[in-house]
Simulated scan of single mutants.
Amino acid sequence: MTDPVDQHWADLLSPSRRNLLRGGGIAATAGLIGGQAFAAEPTPKLSPAAVAARTGKSPWGYETDRGPTRRPKSVRPGEENGLPDRPRAFTDIKSYHAHIYFDEDSYEKAVLIRKWSADRFAIELGNWNHEPRGPHVTPSFYFGFGTDLQPVILPWLQLNSLGLTILIHPNTDDPRADHLHYALWVNRSQPVNAYGMKKPDLAAGEPAVERIYPNTRPTIAIERG
């Protein structure tokens, strides 16, 4: 037979009881048991799948087909408050990033492009990302380069991509737009999860635009026809 005190504690700390406490049914932050105070434990936030598993019902309800269709807020740069009244200056671009994507079947091509690039250009070469990182949803590596090299590196990558997907984006004061709206693609494009990227936090000492610090020592002159 269950001890009444144990059953009381079990009832008190059950998920439904916790919800009641959080809603202020007895005491949102404290209660009394035998004259002794206690603090209510926070209820963990459940995922929609966990809610469905507990209730046996859709966590979204049963009238989702009747919801309004609202126009989403624009995330296109310069259109947050309507169309811009003038174009941006091209000098807002301070540098570029090239992100070379690969997988378990094409990594040897990425190795070759990485070596060719480091041997020929004064670039900022990043580490290997063997798993998705940041807004990039597949393995990749990147290198940064100045605007002075853009007229050379862009056609060089077009001709030496070895069929890999390459994202080339500028660096301005708007990283989200750089990845989603100002980007160029070599070969096919792929999803980039950049919607959550924020503008630099100047108050925290972040630079207004990411800078490039070359770390390679090129030893081979670029091939010319």
Rank of each mutant, 00 (worst) to 15 (best):
F90P: 08
F90T: 13
T91K: 09
D92K: 02
D92M: 12
K94V: 13
H97Y: 13
H97K: 00
H97E: 14
A98C: 15
A98W: 09
H99I: 11
H99N: 12
H99E: 10
I100V: 15
I100A: 04
F102D: 02
F102V: 01
F102M: 06
D103S: 04
E104L: 13
D105C: 00
S106T: 15
Y107C: 02
Y107Q: 10
Y107K: 11
Y107F: 14
E108R: 12
K109L: 14
K109E: 08
A110V: 04
V111F: 11
I113N: 01
I113Y: 03
I113D: 01
I113Q: 00
K115C: 05
K115D: 11
K115F: 08
S117Y: 03
S117T: 15
S117K: 00
S117N: 02
A118W: 04
D119R: 00
D119E: 14
A122S: 15
I123D: 03
I123L: 10
L125R: 03
L125A: 11
G126E: 12
G126Q: 10
G126C: 07
N127T: 08
N127Q: 14
W128L: 07
N129Y: 09
E131H: 11
R133C: 11
G134R: 03
P135D: 05
P135V: 10
P135F: 06
H136L: 06
H136C: 06
H136I: 06
V137G: 04
T138D: 14
T138K: 15
P139H: 01
S140K: 01
F141N: 01
Y142A: 09
F143A: 03
F145M: 08
F145D: 01
F145Y: 14
G146N: 12
T147G: 05
T147K: 07
D148Q: 13
L149W: 00
L149K: 00
L149H: 03
Q150Y: 14
P151E: 10
P151F: 08
P151A: 07
L154S: 09
P155W: 06
W156N: 10
Q158T: 13
L159T: 12
L159Q: 15
N160A: 10
S161A: 15
S161P: 05
S161G: 10
G163D: 06
L164T: 04
T165C: 12
T165H: 11
T165V: 12
L167S: 11
L167H: 11
L167T: 02
H169V: 07
N171F: 13
T172E: 09
D173T: 04
D174G: 01
D174V: 00
D174T: 02
D174Q: 06
D174H: 07
D174P: 00
P175C: 05
R176C: 07
A177G: 12
D178Q: 05
D178K: 05
H179Y: 12
H179T: 06
H179R: 08
H181W: 15
H181M: 06
H181G: 03
Y182R: 14
A183V: 15
L184F: 13
L184S: 12
Q190W: 00
Q190H: 05
P191G: 07
V192P: 05
V192R: 00
V192T: 11
N193V: 05
N193S: 13
A194D: 08
A194V: 07
A194E: 09
Y195L: 15
G196Y: 01
G196S: 02
M197K: 06
M197T: 01
K198Q: 15
K198P: 02
K198I: 09
K198Y: 00
K199D: 14
P200W: 09
D201W: 09
L202W: 01
